[in-house]
């Protein structure tokens, strides 16, 4: 598996895939995409990076334990349902804010954060499985 070509190309490929996954995640509300599919793309990116350059390199690159990333995602997903409670609406009613940044109107919403939560859970859970399997001498 670890040919020179693959080893050389894997980091660039993985970086591009992660970038693409974020693009897919963010455009999901209007175009094909979303947190789940974005998460799958990012997870495959890490899997490829791991196969090419070793699990240790992936773990260094993502800093946190993948399970912690998944947990953070689940937490974010839960928290994103709370703002509606302050306006007296049921849990998880979507809230929208239109923020002007650098002259552009950016729509922010609780479903966006929820989708980011989904993304993180999928990335975290699948990456941790893939890395766990790739590591031969894990403990």
């Amino acid at each position: 598996m670890r040919t020179v070509i693959f080893r050389t190309i894997a980091p660039y490929l993985a970086a591009l895939m992660v970038l693409f996954s974020i693009f897919v995640l963010l455009r999901g509300h209007n175009e094909p995409g979303g947190g789940f599919i974005g998460g799958l793309i990012a997870a495959s990116a890490f899997a490829i990076y791991g196969i090419g350059c070793g699990v240790a390199a992936v773990r260094r690159a993502i800093t946190f334990h993948p399970m912690s990333i998944a947990a953070a995602g689940l937490f974010l997903g839960g928290v994103s349902g709370l703002p509606s409670l302050f306006t007296g609406q049921p849990f998880m009613t979507s809230q929208w804010w239109y923020v002007h940044m650098l002259g552009v109107e950016v729509p922010l919403s609780t479903p966006l954060f929820f989708d980011i939560g989904v993304y993180l859970v999928v990335v975290g859970a699948i990456t941790s499985i893939a890395l766990g399997l790739e590591e031969r001498e894990s403990d």
């Binding site: 999901g28 509300h29 209007n30 175009e31 094909p32 995409g33 979303g34 947190g35 789940f36 997903g77 839960g78 349902g81 849990f91 998880m92 979507s94 929208w96 729509p107 919403s109 479903p111 929820f114 989708d115 989904v118």
Partner: peptide, 19 residues
């Protein structure tokens, strides 16, 4: 506020299921 029905269902209409 979304054109992608699949995504809107996942994160908004049926968000609790997704959770």
């Amino acid at each position: 506020h979304g054109r992608n029905i699949v995504n809107v269902i996942l994160v908004d209409f049926r968000g609790f299921d997704t959770f």
